[in-house]
């Protein structure tokens, strides 16, 4: 599996990662090598195998519908890059 520059660009866009132009060839090479490693999975037939999403065969436990959390906005926002009037600020969102 060999990834092209355009593949890297597409993945980087989906993942919202800036990749420096100069780094793209190396990134493409490394990702391609990893995909080659991953391709070894194809050596085994898994047609009738049930996919395993989780190591434990358990059902979801449910929580009672009770409000347990208090307002901790000030504390939470001390680590925020930019806030105003209690709101997190981001560059203008255009819908």
């Amino acid at each position: 599996m060999s990834l092209e520059r355009s593949d890297v660009d597409k993945i980087a866009q989906l993942a919202r990662l800036e990749i420096a132009e100069n780094d793209v060839p190396e990134v493409a090479r490394n990702l391609s090598n990893i995909l080659d490693l991953v391709a070894q999975m194809d050596s085994v037939n898994t047609d009738d195998v049930e996919p395993m999403a989780h190591p434990l065969e358990m059902a979801q436990r449910l929580r009672d519908d009770v409000v347990t959390e208090k307002d901790r906005r000030d504390q939470f926002q001390t680590v925020a890059p930019q806030v105003e009037n209690g709101l997190y600020l981001v560059p203008k969102v255009i819908e």
Partner: peptide
Amino acid sequence: RGEGFGAEVKRRIMIGTY
């Protein structure tokens, strides 16, 4: 994200995204 993450983290995010 590009500045905050190092090369290996970016690599794995990209593999997973793909």
